[in-house]
């Protein structure tokens, strides 16, 4: 069990600015049928994750497929409820609130999906897609709803005449703009972006990222930016949380993580990311093997099978996330025991 260490980090930060949203010890376990007459297995998609994000800031969640980052997105937007843990929004635990308040607050947390071709209802016009959240929740009149939709269309760089079109008439980048506009209809405080630009072309990707950053500044949004693309994360994030198999392995300010990665996994991720400029490249660290199955995770540190610095202790004991200097924290025995050669002290 990881202690709520990051909570301390969070409270240290709170002297500056209280986080708008935070999670403590979030767990999501799914029972899985393994076949007839066999006991059901347990997939620990999330296993004790703490996080916090402030208004106007971006927390990036990085990791490979199966690390639990998409599960985290589903928990944050309450598409699923966690098996265990606390989810605080503006100081209130969303999970213990009564239905009405929860429904109210839930509107302040919106999500943008990866695939702009699947996230817009193909049988509805852009106008009614945008207005749907208002129809469900709002007390606005039809004219007011339309006004707001047109307003947001313009804000994301689309034109009023797009109001009456169907999603299939738009390019991927434009659809993602529509999806962003829809997410903003209810004046959210937190936007969870689940790989929002991975399905887009490079040039369009930059347009959408710029738009997201502009909107963040203008509306003081907090982003939880989920991505596997480290070069994008480096640009947009303030804090980075690296996940591996349902656990956070490293957390810290973006610059720290990218210049001085501590956890061997973070380092491997960084080195695997291709770079155009030869000066940006660092020596490739080839990870052997693949991501272990979450149904049958290795004992001890989940990364030990692929880690070149692992020793006997790593195979048995699970490292906890420990505070390092500043606001960063790492879960690795190698750092405690001073046996990671790349960390100079």
């Amino acid at each position: 069990m990881s202690e709520p260490i990051m909570n301390q980090t969070a409270s240290a930060e709170s002297t500056k600015k209280a986080p708008i949203m935070s999670g403590v010890g979030l767990k999501q376990h799914y029972p899985v049928k393994q076949g007839f007459m066999k006991p059901p297995g347990l997939v620990k998609a999330l296993d004790g994750v703490n996080f916090s994000v402030e208004a106007g800031k971006t927390l990036a969640v990085v990791g490979e497929s199966g690390c639990g980052k998409s599960t985290l997105a589903r928990l944050l937007t309450m598409i699923e409820l966690p098996t265990e843990g606390e989810l605080n929004f503006e100081g209130k635990n969303l999970l213990t609130l009564d239905r009405e308040t929860r429904k109210e607050l839930r509107q302040r947390i919106q999500i943008i999906f990866q695939n702009p071709y699947g996230s817009l209802n193909p049988r509805k016009k852009v106008g009614s897609i945008l207005e749907e959240p208002l129809v469900i929740n709002g007390k606005l009149t039809k004219a007011e709803r339309k006004e707001r939709a047109l307003n947001l269309l313009q804000k994301v760089g689309l034109k009023p005449e797009h109001y009456d079109r169907y999603p299939h008439m738009f390019s991927g980048g434009q659809r993602q703009r529509i999806a962003i506009a829809r997410g903003l209809m209810m004046n959210p405080k937190v936007v969870v972006a689940d790989e929002p630009v991975s399905a887009l072309d490079v040039s369009v990707q930059a347009q959408v990222l710029n738009l997201m950053m502009d909107l963040q500044q203008e509306l003081d949004l907090a982003y939880v930016f989920i991505s596997h693309d480290l070069s994008v994360v480096e640009h947009i994030a303030d804090k980075v949380m690296v996940m591996y198999l349902g656990k956070v392995v490293e957390y810290g300010a973006t610059e720290d993580i990218f210049t001085h990665p501590q956890h061997p996994y973070t380092r491997a991720l960084l080195s695997s990311t291709p770079r155009i400029d030869p000066e940006h490249r660092i020596e490739k660290i080839q990870l052997t093997g693949e991501l272990p199955s979450p149904l049958n995770p290795p004992s001890g540190c989940a990364f030990h099978g692929r880690c070149e610095f692992a020793n006997e202790r790593c195979k048995v004991e699970t490292p906890a996330l420990k505070d390092k200097t500043g606001e960063s924290s790492v879960a690795c025995f190698g750092i405690d025991e001073n046996r990671l050669p790349y960390i100079d002290r």
Binding site: R106, Q107, I111, F113, Q114, G118, N121, E132, I136, N137
Partner: peptide, 17 residues
């Protein structure tokens, strides 16, 4: 399980809707 259904759920749509 398509994203547009989930985004409607996030928007607070009920079962009938």
């Amino acid at each position: 399980n398509k994203d547009y259904v989930i985004s409607s759920r996030v928007a607070g749509a009920g079962a009938l809707r």
